[in-house]
Computed example of a mutant assay.
Amino acid sequence: MKIIILLLLSLSCKAQSPILDISESGTGLPNGYYLKDTYNLLNPFEGIYEYTNGNTSFKIVLVKKVQQYNGEYYEDLIIGEYQYIENGIVKVNTLSELNTVYSNQRVHKIDSNFLVGNNFKLFPCTSCLTNEKRLYTSIMDPISKRYADLIMRRTTENGQEVMKIKITNPSGGAYLEVEGPPAEFSLPLGELTLIKQ
């Protein structure tokens, strides 16, 4: 009897956790709320995208994860991994980590549910449509252990689905004087157009 009561209480408590859209803030709420992609705005970002220029390529694979616990609350988010080949040499390849299930999915090299409009102060978009949403995140370089801003825009060019990305503002990276400065950021900075595969 006690087990049944405890089970009902736990289900009742879980059902009372607030569900918010990913555009809302859970600030001030107790742990356990759920930031849900109510309008499926993250869905268009899912997929495999690749930029190729000669023997240099940059491939990103993005997957939507639903109701992932990050240690404080549940959230829907996009996670991703990538491969960067420069002049035929693989500089970074984290694609094998895409299916790794971490206790907090925010460990992936790309992770976000922060959607921004065309007037986003850090990266305004004059060519974006009025209600268009872009995904703002960071990208982690496992070689230098540095992060950079990454903003992604899904659009169509010449009838082809593409992802326009901008990688900018790499972090300085923390280091000890005896170790010297951190390694150079391994990924290409600037804007690239990746074609959906």
Rank of each mutant, 00 (worst) to 15 (best):
E50S: 15
T56V: 08
T56M: 12
S57W: 02
S57K: 15
K59Q: 11
I60D: 01
I60Q: 08
I60S: 05
L62W: 11
K65F: 04
K65I: 09
K65W: 07
Y69E: 02
Y73F: 07
Y73D: 04
Y74A: 05
Y74G: 03
E75C: 10
D76E: 13
L77A: 12
L77P: 02
L77M: 14
L77C: 10
I78D: 03
G80H: 02
G80L: 04
G80E: 01
E81C: 00
E86M: 07
N87D: 12
N87V: 02
N87F: 05
G88R: 15
G88P: 13
V90Q: 14
T94V: 05
T94R: 01
L95Q: 12
L95G: 10
E97Y: 05
E97P: 07
L98F: 10
N99A: 11
V101T: 07
Y102Q: 09
Y102L: 05
Y102N: 08
S103H: 04
S103A: 00
S103T: 01
Q105C: 05
R106F: 09
R106E: 13
H108L: 01
H108I: 01
H108E: 00
I110N: 03
D111G: 15
S112K: 06
F114L: 07
N118F: 03
K121D: 08
P124F: 03
C125I: 12
S127Q: 06
C128L: 12
E132P: 13
E132Q: 15
E132L: 14
K133R: 15
R134L: 11
L135V: 03
Y136G: 10
T137C: 09
T137S: 14
T137I: 00
I139H: 02
I139Y: 03
D141K: 02
D141W: 00
K145F: 02
R146G: 04
R146C: 07
Y147E: 05
L150M: 10
L150I: 06
I151H: 03
R153L: 02
R153Q: 05
R154Q: 06
T156H: 12
E157I: 10
G159P: 10
E161N: 15
V162W: 13
I165D: 02
I165Q: 04
K166L: 06
K166Q: 05
I167A: 06
I167K: 08
I167R: 07
T168F: 09
